[in-house]
Nucleic acid binder design. Structure first.
Length: 629
RNA sequence: GUCCUAGUAGCUCAGUGGAUAGAGCGACCGCCUCCUAAGCGGUAGGUCGGAGGUUCAACUCCUCUCUGGGACACCA
């Protein structure tokens, strides 16, 4: 009696817990709520049958949809129950059948207990939710109240953006949107690298070779204009080196030394010193050329759909940090080396010693980053700061985070390096010296041209409206999707000739599906009987329809996962799955059909939800939505 | 040398420890009387780099090893 009472209480507690779980998941994902109630049911049955005390059980997806929607592999209980897993499966099924259980049909297949959910039971609430939330559908609150700062792009002001930057920009922008979609308050920051000897190189070349031409006099985009002089500098330097080499070979080593003593490199160094000393003429030229480049970069950002909430400029931030290091020195966090430089020993995290201040007291890269991080936290007290920077810099960030931690900033634990892989060409790394760098503007331009050709060849000019604008949006979709579908951490290979296609698993394919759905909905508008028709979920009984319902209901969890992982590719894979399934479905199923209103109404409601999900996912990935293409 | 990363179809990439490893491209074969053929269907194509180990179960985790990429500046 006493035991039974206890058992009763236990079960009650459990169902309260269960209710809580169900309620929680209802908020995120209606399908998961059903799944989790099944999970709890199976756990309960297993515990009762074999006197166990399991709190969790493995739940997976069956390999084929006709086998059901969820699968419970029951191998693990074989040992404790001392029974073959196949027998356990049928015993568990019978046990569940003997009492109350969630809606759904069970079957066993070997050691697996499979459940086909009654997907229609969630349909109307799901439809209601998607309709009410609209463009907010999929948004969650897992990061509510969190202030997240995201640093990305960080271009140099001596050349235009290339494909590598585009991956960075695409990723940074997408992740920031995904974090926002999970409820975070996001601050996108860009650190402009407008200072240093590399900047002086383009300035010097301009000074020597320009004859006073400007972007407006040549009609060039500012960043390309400046970039041209950066390239010019490199060839100039090379020319001088070759000249010196030749002289040396001819026995004129003195003349050779003379040339190298005043080589472009040396002159650029001198220019940097002039800049740092505040030389008026140098600063004036620097400002002018910076402006040209930035105008160009801003234009590229706009074309790519990238924006920032705040800009930091290295010409300012390079001053931050020195005081922090000196304070750290006083506090004994750092030490002064024999030569007078300030250093830190990073052996605690398996790294070498690192210099933080040169012996002459000047700062280096990492010193600036220390100062900038501190400054940023003062500017906007973030809960997390994510640096979107290529994987090459893992060492740097490991050291940086450690240093900040050592300086006593507790928020150092919340710094995160979102390290992404390189974009390589089939023949290897992009090298500016070999002219193999894929320019961002050029790439967008040529993709737009290809898209335009496609539109014209399909005779869709009148249907799409503004051909150039649509072509541009198709190009953007191709590029963003291409860059985001790959897991961020991985290196990727970009083949300019083959990789960007408009067919298959691509951005334009997704846009096309969106356009086709829009087209269906336009047609449905003309069938007035559809407007007030009752929606009967049971009519959506095909495999594709069930898959699509499941997919729609899963969207919020996908957004959450992408947010947890900082990984837009999760959304890319998901939305491709949606598009593909839909594409297969509507190929052989008429949606807007005046001759069968009930079926048509049900299908339309499903298609309407798919469209909402697509639009919302597109938004997160930077894929423009097109009504028609 | 040390550390980090990756290795899955010809190519580019997916793949929460669970059933027969998936897409796209490329190749080959079909499909426009129907809401856009930037589409749909089909065929061919795999010792998941290799060897051990853990596990009822390994592409997935661990160790070793081979190969590629990256890092290990008083450059940024």
């Amino acid at each position: 009696m006493q035991y039974e009472l206890k058992h009763e209480v236990y079960v009650n507690l459990k169902s309260i817990w269960l209710f809580y779980i169900v309620f929680w998941y209802l908020e995120i994902n209606m399908l998961d709520s059903l799944k989790n109630s099944w999970k709890a049911t199976v756990i309960k049955a297993v515990n009762k049958l074999y006197g166990l005390n399991e709190t969790d059980i493995n739940m997976t997806n069956p390999p084929k949809s006709e086998m059901g929607d969820i699968a419970f592999p029951l191998f693990p209980f074989s040992k404790s129950a001392r029974k073959a897993p196949q027998i356990i499966a049928s015993e568990v099924m019978n046990e569940i059948l003997s009492s109350e259980h969630p809606e759904g049909e069970m079957n066993t297949a070997g050691a697996y207990l499979n459940v086909a959910l009654n997907i229609h039971s969630i349909y109307l609430p799901l439809l209601e939710k998607v309709r009410t939330e609209g463009f907010l559908y999929g948004r969650g609150e897992s990061l509510k109240g969190k202030k997240i700062m995201l640093e990305f792009s960080c271009p140099n002001t001596n050349k235009p953006l290339h494909l590598g930057h585009m991956r960075n920009d695409s990723l940074g922008e997408a992740v920031s949107r995904i974090l926002k979609a999970n409820g975070a308050e996001v601050m996108k920051v860009n650190l402009i690298n407008n200072r240093g000897v590399h900047i002086c190189k383009s300035m010097l070349a301009y000074k020597v070779f320009s004859n006073g031409e400007t972007p407006s006099s040549t009609g060039e985009k500012g960043d390309h204009f400046v970039g041209r002089y950066y390239v010019k500098f490199a060839s100039w330097q090379k020319e001088m080196e070759e000249k010196a080499e030749k002289l040396r070979n001819e026995g004129h080593s003195q003349e050779a030394d003379e040339i190298m003593k005043n080589s472009p490199e040396v002159q650029a160094q001198a220019m940097l010193r002039a800049w740092e000393e505040g030389d008026e003429e140098t600063i004036k030229l620097w400002k002018l050329m910076n402006e040209w480049t930035l105008d160009g970069l801003y234009e590229s950002y706009e074309n790519m759909g990238i924006s920032f909430d705040r800009y930091y400029y290295e010409s300012e931030t390079y001053k931050y940090g020195k005081a922090e290091i000196l304070k750290g020195l006083e506090d004994g966090v750092f030490f002064r080396a024999e030569d007078g430089s300030v250093q830190i020993d990073l052996k605690e995290i398996g790294l070498d010693k690192k210099v933080l201040l040169r012996k002459d007291g000047t700062t280096i890269y990492i010193t600036q980053d220390v100062g900038t991080a501190i400054r940023r936290h003062e500017d906007w007290p973030f809960d997390r700061l994510i640096y979107v920077v290529a994987s090459e810099q893992q060492y740097h960030f490991k050291a940086l985070f450690y240093i900040l931690k050592k300086l006593g900033y507790s928020w150092a634990d919340e710094l995160y390096h979102l390290s992404y892989g390189m974009v390589n060409l089939p023949e290897g790394k992009m090298k500016s010296r070999e002219g193999t760098v894929v320019d961002a503007d050029d790439l967008l331009e040529s993709l737009s041209a290809l898209a335009k050709e496609e539109i014209i060849s399909k005779d869709r000019e009148s249907a799409v409206g503004d051909v150039d604008s649509v072509a541009r949006k198709i190009a953007l979709a191709a590029l963003n999707y291409y860059l985001l579908q790959v897991s961020p951490t991985k290196d990727m290979i970009f083949d300019p000739k083959k990789s960007i296609s408009f067919n298959g698993n691509t951005g334009p394919y997704l846009e096309y599906m969106g356009a086709r759905i829009s087209s269906i909905l336009r047609k449905a508008e003309t069938i007035s009987a559809l407007k007030d028709a009752e929606i009967k979920p049971d009519l959506l009984a095909s495999d594709d329809e069930k898959s699509l319902i499941k997919l729609v209901s899963q969207y919020p969890s996908v957004v959450k996962e992408a947010g947890d992982e900082y990984d837009p590719s999760v959304i890319a894979a998901y939305i491709y799955e949606v598009a593909k399934t839909f594409s297969h479905y509507y190929h052989d199923n008429q949606v807007a059909d005046a001759s069968n209103i009930p079926l048509s109404a049900a299908r339309l409601s499903l298609v309407e939800m798919i469209l909402t999900v697509m639009k919302n996912a597109f938004e997160l990935l930077g894929i423009p939505f097109l009504e028609s293409m």
